[in-house]
Computed example of a mutant assay.
Amino acid sequence: MSYSIIGFGAVGQALARAFARKSIDVTVASRRPPAMLMERARAIGPNVVPGTLEDAIASDTIFLAVPFWEHREVAKQLATWQGKTIIDTTNAYGVPVEELEGQPPATVVARAFTGARFVKGFNHLPAAVLAADPGVNGGSRVVFLSSDDENAVAPVAALAEQLGFAPIALGPLKDGGLLVQGRGNTWGQLIFQDLVKFK
C-alpha cells in the first residue's frame, strides 16, 4: 500500500509528521516543485519524500490537504479514480453555502473524484494538534471518519490506528460529514473537539 499527501501546508505537514513518527513512507506534493519541499520534508523525517503531483496521484491512498476549491484541480488529473482511496481533510469554512448548491462540502468533493473510495476524515483538529503525538495519557487521540461507502472506512480506520489515532466512524457524508465540516460562517458540532479514547 502506498500513501501520499497532496498539499504541504500546515495540515499536510501535520499528516506527514504522523507518518514520520511511525516510519511509514509517504509522498508529499504541492503546487511547488519537489525541490522546494525538500528542506521541510527532511526536517520532518526521512520517510517523507517530496514528489510531483503525478507521483502523488500514483499512490493507492491519497490525503487531500489543499484549500477547499483546489480539490477540483487535483480531480482533473485523472478521468477515473477507480481503485484509489481519497481521504478528504479539506474544510469549506468561508465558502458561501449557495456555492455548495445545498450539498455537504464533503459530497461536493466526493463527486469530483469519480470512481474513488472516498472518506472524510482527519479534518476536525487544528493542524498543531493533528501534528502532535496522538498518544495522550495512555489513550489515543480521536479522528472522525465518514463515508457513503462502508467498505472504504475500514482500511482508512486501520491506517488511522497504524498512525496511532483512535478512529470513530460517523456514518454517511450527509450526517457524519456535516458534524466535522465548516461551511459559510459555521462549524460542525465536532470541529475542534480534541477527544481521547482509552482502551
Score class of each variant (00 low, 15 high):
Y3R: 01
S4N: 08
I5P: 02
I5F: 06
I6P: 01
A10P: 01
A10D: 10
G12Y: 01
L15W: 06
R17W: 01
R17K: 15
K22R: 15
S23V: 08
I24E: 03
I24Y: 01
A29C: 12
S30I: 07
S30A: 15
R31Y: 14
R31H: 15
R32D: 15
A43T: 09
A43I: 04
I44A: 02
N47G: 11
V48W: 04
V48P: 02
L53T: 09
D55T: 13
I57N: 05
S59K: 06
I62S: 02
F63S: 00
A65S: 15
A65I: 07
W69R: 12
H71C: 02
R72F: 08
E73K: 14
E73Q: 14
A75S: 13
A75P: 05
A75H: 07
L78W: 06
A79L: 12
A79N: 14
G83M: 09
G83K: 09
T85A: 05
T85R: 05
I86M: 11
I87R: 03
I87A: 04
N91L: 08
A92F: 08
V95L: 09
V95A: 07
P96Y: 10
E99N: 13
E101G: 09
T107L: 11
V108Q: 04
V109D: 05
A110R: 14
R117V: 04
F118E: 00
F118T: 03
V119F: 03
G121I: 06
G121S: 08
F122Y: 15
N123W: 00
N123S: 10
L125C: 11
L125K: 03
P126N: 10
A128S: 14
A131N: 02
D133M: 01
D133R: 00
V136Y: 01
N137T: 05
N137L: 10
S140Y: 02
V143T: 10
S146V: 08
E150H: 07
N151V: 11
N151S: 15
V153P: 00
V156S: 01
V156T: 08
L159M: 13
G164A: 04
A166D: 05
I168A: 12
A169M: 05
L170P: 00
P172S: 08
K174D: 14
K174R: 13
D175A: 11
G176M: 06
L178Y: 05
Q181H: 11
G188D: 02
L190S: 03
I191P: 00
L195E: 04
L195D: 00
K199Y: 13
K199T: 13
